[in-house]
Amino acid sequence: MFTASLEKIGGITIRLFKSCGRLFLFFIRGFINAFILPIQFNKIIDQTWFIGAKSFFVIVLTAVFTGMVLGLQGYYSLAKFGSEAGLGAAVAMTLVRELGPVLTAIMVTARAGSAMAAEIGVMRVSEQIDALKTMHINPVRFLFTPRLIASVISLPLLTALFIVVGILGGYLSGSILLGINQYDYMDAVIKSVDIEDINGGFSKSFVFSVVVTTICCYRGYYTHLSSGFGARGVSLSTTNAVVQSCIFILIFDYIITFFLV
C-alpha cells in the first residue's frame, strides 16, 4: 500500500519532468529555426492572418465591453469617495497593466490556440507529420516556427488594440452614460499611465504569446504521446492545450507582475 502510493507519486513526477523537458526542447527547436534561413515569409503571413487579423473583431468586441464594465464598476466605487474624476486613471491602469495583455492572450488562446492544437493534432494522428519527415521537411520548423513568429508579432498588436478600444469603452460608459467630464476622463488616462506601466504590459503580452503558442503547438504535436490516437486524442489534447495555456498565462502574469512592481 505504502510502496504503491510512493510508486504512483514517483511515476507522476517522472512524467511531469519528462514532459517539461520535452516542452522546453520543443520551444528551443522552434526558436532556433526562426533564425535559420530562408525565412518562411508566406507561412508567417498566413499565420499572422489567422492568429492576428482574424482575431481583430473578437478583440474589439471584448475590449469595448471590458472597458464599459470597468467604467461602470469604477464609477460606482469611486463615487463613494467623491473622486469620479479619477475614473480614467482606474480604467487605463487596469487595462494597460493587467486586463489588456491577459484578456487578449486568453481570447487568442480560445480562438487561435485551440485551432493550432487541433490542426497539428490531426496532422499527427493522420501521419501527416510523419509524411513531412519522409520528405525531409523539419516538422517543427514547418509547423511551429511560423506560428511562433506570427504570435509574437500579433499578440502585442492585439493587446495595443485592446487597450485603446478598452479606454474608449470606459469613455462610453463613464463620460457618455454617467456624465463624467470627458476632459477629466482623458486627462486622468494620460496622466496616470507611466512608460513603465506600458513596458510592463507589453512585456507580458510578449511572454504570453510565446507561452500560448508553445503549449498549444506542443500539445498538438505530441498528441500521440499524451492523449492517444484518433479523434478522441485530438479532442483531449485541444482541451488540455486551452486549459494549460490559460493556467500558464495567469501564472506568468503573477510572476511578471511580481518582478515589475
Binding site: 503571413i45 498566413d46 499572422t48 492572418w49 492576428g52 487579423a53 481583430f56 487605463a92 494597460v96 508579432i153 500579433s154 502585442p156 498588436l157 492585439l158 495595443a160 488594440l161 487597450i163 485603446v164 488616462v189 494620460i190 499611465v193 507611466d194 512608460i195 506601466d197 506600458i198
Partner: peptide
C-alpha cells in the same frame, strides 16, 4: 490575405504608437 494582414499590422501599430506617445508621454 496580404491586404488584411497589412491592415491589421498598421492598425495595431497605430494603437501601439498612440499608447506609447500619448499615454506614455514619450
Amino acid at each position: 490575405i496580404e491586404f488584411y494582414v497589412g491592415l491589421f499590422v498598421v492598425l495595431g501599430l497605430v494603437c501601439t504608437i498612440y499608447i506609447f506617445v500619448v499615454l506614455g508621454e514619450i
